[in-house]
Amino acid sequence: MLELRLVQGSLLKKVLDAMRELVNDANFDCSATGFSLQAMDSSHVALVALLLRSEGFEHYRCDRNLSMGMNLNNMSKMLRCAGNDDIITIKADDGTDSVTFMFESPNQDKIADFEMKLMDIDSEHLGIPDAEYQAIVRMPSSEFARICKDLSSIGDTVVISVTKEGVKFSTAGDIGTANIVCRQNKTVDKPEEATIIEMQEPVSLTFALRYLNSFTKATPLSDTVTISLSSELPVVVEYKIAEMGYIRYYLAPKIEE
């Protein structure tokens, strides 16, 4: 028996929007820790890892570990039927092949339930060890989204370089080149507007902009984004989900031949 009640139902809609461009089908894993997911895109270049901790739910009952295979577009179709202020409850019984999403309006005058068929998905979990990163950049998520969008109109790949001067995003294409440098800036009115660079040593890596643009679909989930870089490791782009957990994206770098 599984029953997860999330007062801030719109958060689940945002989480789905943040993943479904990258991944079609995924197994949601439910345990005492929380509601989580790890899935790769079809080309195994990018990976998304989601954790919504059990403490973040108003009610969280998960009698035994359960893995539920869902088509994210179908799930999104159902969640779009929930109002933005609705409370969403996810329910599943042991041994059934469906999941129920229950939507309650804030004043309880409308209650809807949508039952979705589950699917069997062969998921390949990768072990992601904790690593020391050479550079960690924290910046406003809207700024990162703007940079990725702007650069993708010029080129297909971005070189992200961190030095003590700041973080530089560079691209090149048929029509020309572009460089955007963001310097560390802690003197802002609000902490979420700061750009903070923690650098152990300079690092420079190349990534496909198409994937980074997909990651920025998580922008509505968090005011800030953290980009962790190390040579010869996938970049980690993390959006913290307040009170709940995180959505992290891993992207393998382009390798020089």
């Binding site: 790769m40 080309s43 979990h125 990768l126 992601i128 010869e232 996938p234 393998a252």
Partner: peptide, 14 residues
Amino acid sequence: KSSQGRLESFFKPM
């Protein structure tokens, strides 16, 4: 010239 790396080159399957 550069080629796109894959995640399995960095992380092992569990």
